[in-house]
Simulated scan of single mutants.
Amino acid sequence: MKEWLGAAAVCLNEQDEILVVRGYDSPGWEVPSGGIEIGETPEQCCEREVKEETGYDVKVVDHLHTKKTKIQEIKVTTYYFKTEVKGGSLGINDPDKTIAEAKWVSISEFLTLKHAYPEDTPYIEKWMKKLYRS
């Protein structure tokens, strides 16, 4: 069975807004994420994908969750990390040309968005409240 490994970033700013992106081929929003390249750790992948998809330099500060699922005949593992912005500014520089839009949204707005991966929404809501409201 084919396998895909990826990483995703849960990144909140000082206003407790979460960074989300929307792809050209998706009507839904998601946290920045992508596939792990050869020689990369999940953490390095996470930091690279955020930079490419949003323009922000981030640092992984904590592992939140590992999601394992099967999509068609592909075994999918995605590592979710809490990240902090260290620099940069909002701007898409995605070499794959898949990201249409990136923005910061509040927790309440996040819950009303159409999500690319709706099964992740309860986890992300819980992490947002736990990590940044305590």
Results as ranks from 00 to 15, higher is better:
Val20Ala: 04
Gly87His: 09
Thr77Ile: 15
Thr83Phe: 06
Ile71Arg: 10
Gly23Ile: 00
Val85Leu: 14
Tyr56Arg: 05
Pro95Trp: 03
Glu119Trp: 14
Val60Lys: 06
Asp120Met: 12
Trp29Tyr: 15
Gly28Ala: 06
Asp16Pro: 00
Phe110His: 02
Tyr24Arg: 13
Pro42His: 03
Ser89Met: 07
Glu43Ile: 06
Asp62Gly: 04
Thr77Val: 15
Trp29Pro: 04
Glu14Cys: 03
Gly35His: 08
Lys68Ile: 09
Asn13Cys: 12
Glu30Ile: 06
Thr54Gln: 07
Leu5Thr: 05
Leu5Phe: 13
Tyr24Asn: 09
Gly35Trp: 06
Thr78Tyr: 08
Lys2Phe: 09
Glu73His: 11
Ile99Cys: 03
Gly23Asn: 11
Tyr132Val: 11
Asp96Val: 01
Ile99Ser: 00
Ala9Tyr: 03
Arg22Phe: 07
Lys126Ile: 02
Leu5Ser: 11
Lys70Met: 13
Arg133Trp: 10
Glu73Lys: 07
Ile38Ser: 07
Thr112Trp: 01
Glu30Ser: 13
Gly39Ser: 07
Glu47Phe: 00
Phe110Asp: 02
Ile92Ala: 01
Ile74Asn: 08
Ser33Pro: 00
Arg133Glu: 13
Gly34Asp: 03
Asp62His: 07
Cys46Asn: 08
Pro27His: 11
Gln44Cys: 02
Pro42Phe: 04
Gly39Pro: 09
Ala116Met: 04
Thr83Leu: 04
Glu43Met: 14
Ser26Lys: 14
Gly28Met: 08
Gly34Cys: 08
Ser108Met: 03
Trp4Ile: 13
Cys11Val: 13
Glu47Asp: 04
Thr77Ala: 12
Ile74Tyr: 06
His115Ser: 09
Met1Gly: 14
Thr69Gly: 01
Ile36Ser: 01
Asp25Ser: 15
Leu90Met: 14
Glu119Lys: 14
Asn13Gly: 10
Val105Leu: 12
Leu111Thr: 05
Arg133Lys: 12
Ile18Cys: 06
His115Ala: 07
Val10Gln: 05
Glu52Trp: 05
Thr54Ala: 10
Arg133Ser: 14
Asp57Glu: 13
Pro95Arg: 00
Gln44Glu: 15
Val10Pro: 03
Asp94Cys: 00
Gly34Val: 02
Glu101Gly: 03
Gly28Arg: 08
Phe81Arg: 07
Arg133Gln: 12
Gly6Lys: 06
His115Thr: 02
Lys51Ala: 11
Pro118Gln: 10
Val85Tyr: 00
His65Phe: 15
Val10Leu: 15
Cys11Asn: 05
Val10Cys: 09
Trp4Ser: 11
Pro27Ala: 14
Ser33Leu: 13
Leu64Thr: 05
Ile18Tyr: 01
Gly55Ile: 03
Ile124Gly: 01
Val50Asn: 04
Ile107Arg: 09
Ser134Arg: 13
Cys45Val: 01
Ile71Val: 14
His65Met: 08
Lys129Glu: 09
Gly23Thr: 02
Lys67Ser: 14
Val21Lys: 00
Glu43Asp: 04
Ala9Asp: 06
Tyr123Trp: 15
Ser33Gly: 15
Tyr80Cys: 05
Ile107Lys: 08
Leu64Ala: 03
Ala116Ser: 11
Leu131Trp: 11
Thr69Glu: 14
Asp62Met: 05
Tyr117Gly: 00
Val61Glu: 13
Ala9Phe: 00
Ser134Thr: 12
Glu109Cys: 00
Ile36Thr: 05
Tyr56Phe: 15
